[in-house]
Write a protein that binds this DNA or RNA. Sequence first.
DNA 1: TTGTTGTCATCAATCGATTGCAATATACCC
DNA 2: GGGTATATTGCAATCGATTGATGACAACAA
Lengths: 342, 342
Amino acid sequence: MANKVTLKQIAQEVGLSPSSVSLVLNNRPCRISEENRKLIKEVAARNHYVPNQIARSLVMRESRTLGLIVPNIESRFFASLAGSLEKRCREDGYALFITSSGGSADDDLELLRQLVTRGVDGVFLVVGDEFSDDRALREEVSHLPIPAVMVDRAIEGLECDKVMFDHEMGGYMATRYLIEQGHRRIACLVNARRSNTGRKRLAGYERALREVGLPIDARLEFESEYYIPSAYESSEAVLATDATAVFASSDNIALGLLKRLHEMGKSIPGDISVVSYDNSAADVLFEPALTAIEQDPGVLAEHAFGCMSKRLAGRGGRRAEEVVLEPALIVKDSVLELTKHN
Amino acid sequence: MANKVTLKQIAQEVGLSPSSVSLVLNNRPCRISEENRKLIKEVAARNHYVPNQIARSLVMRESRTLGLIVPNIESRFFASLAGSLEKRCREDGYALFITSSGGSADDDLELLRQLVTRGVDGVFLVVGDEFSDDRALREEVSHLPIPAVMVDRAIEGLECDKVMFDHEMGGYMATRYLIEQGHRRIACLVNARRSNTGRKRLAGYERALREVGLPIDARLEFESEYYIPSAYESSEAVLATDATAVFASSDNIALGLLKRLHEMGKSIPGDISVVSYDNSAADVLFEPALTAIEQDPGVLAEHAFGCMSKRLAGRGGRRAEEVVLEPALIVKDSVLELTKHN
DNA sequence: TTGTTGTCATCAATCGATTGCAATATACCC
DNA sequence: GGGTATATTGCAATCGATTGATGACAACAA
């Protein structure tokens, strides 16, 4: 294991002052003879000199590093978001530190502190469980000494840049499509109890029904957490109804549902039609391919970085910016068109 | 956006010296009156004081931060590895900075520098493309001023702690199992050209065949990159053979194969048996569930952290440690038992 | 000789913490 | 009151960089 080499050591070896070495290695405009320039560079290279960014950030007061906090890096959607964001950051010369909280507000808070304290210039925050006690977290976020951008999910009522998809619209689009295909009895499987996004998707679902004068039937609205087993549990009840279609409000929920369907020997879309959400498992072999509301994590990343960029450049407005992105309906093969029915 | 509060400012407000404030806030054994202690803590809290870890690491020469470089955070296996590793690090009070390279040795090198320069105490390295020009990378790794642990994949001939699964054994186990189930014509689909792991899995496949005296038939060995489309392409040829079973040496390869199988109307395991690798898509609904060689990322994380921990404590031996983990065969429903055949 | 200009390089303060040692204040003892 | 012990707190150096101000020296003009 090699030792860390410092500016001073290089200076010593070259026989010049640390200042000169710094100047040269950073290519600053300064008057150092060509000869010494070469010498310095050569010695630095030979010694594998890497400037200590820690020391540098201390005086420069910026680290060209950004932080990202996601609730769970093992989720496909967040992993993809992290990947896109990292690429985007790198394009602008920023390093991105990805951290994964356990999902609780306490974890988020802890990681947020870790990042701030380690001198990131800004932080992207995808909050976890939206219904745990987040007072400390909101307090912290509102006192942050660096810009923060909330991505995909927001803490309600917190003045902070936000970039997210329109979940209400997603729910609406999915349901609307099912209606257009002739479905009248449409069930939905959502996480409304513990998730704001779920709540919004449900609202969109109901709006679509209302819009065409269909009744909103509480017996067709089912609750599920964003985990496959939870959805699997809830799905049995769904299949006991007379619904001809289901809006599954997340990909995991869809997977749980599909598993149950398969076990019961029901086919899609023959026995029942399905619209899913988050086409993040698109590359996996589904049979049939699922029609879904898609949220491109790359787009999310792009806009989130845009917001951050503005703030970092001091161009952000006084008030928080809120970007709402429209999801897309990707039609595949899991919905049956009912020509004459009901 | 709040301002950053420094020790000095707190000291000023309390009317004591920065040293005293530092001592108290770090709970160091020192003789500061109970009264002032309280006062300091109160003022610090009121001002949302967070110590500047940057400044602290500079003098302490440790940051209690570790770094991880993976080739692609969007891969399920790496995401899972990252998640496990992060949890493990946090348990010991370390923060983990996850970074995702593009997969090339150049990217790895760049990120490695980024991490070192930002003062991580150690780095976990999952190298990307094993066949790009990695001279600069090996050079850098061997001169690293901090401990490094290579995970899952290694640069051959580099003296460095390594933790990985036994890929040869994995290939062997998969093939051996197929043989035991009565298969004699077994194809394999591997990434031997661009991946050491693939090469090893192929070696294991061949060993299993040799062991029972089956011929090694080059016409049954097919090449595929670790991407679904690539496997999809290669699969057509596989199905043109008389093989009754296929060893698909990664989950993505299995997916590409499955897609093709489905399109050709072939059923598993009726028409052909499949053993997959990396049971990382286990929670997704496959039909039928795939028998596979499983590598638990959590185990990998645990051992990797163990190595790192030793090094950080200065307990690591002079020589590099090499941990080889055994994968597991998880039997599900994608292999048909041939009782009398051939 | 003195002054001017230009070239090359260094000084010293700074960023925000930590910490060994020195310093001061107070109490206690004879 | 002088001396010693003890309780509190502050000084100043340090970590490794950056950077505006400044110095040293040579060449050349007047």
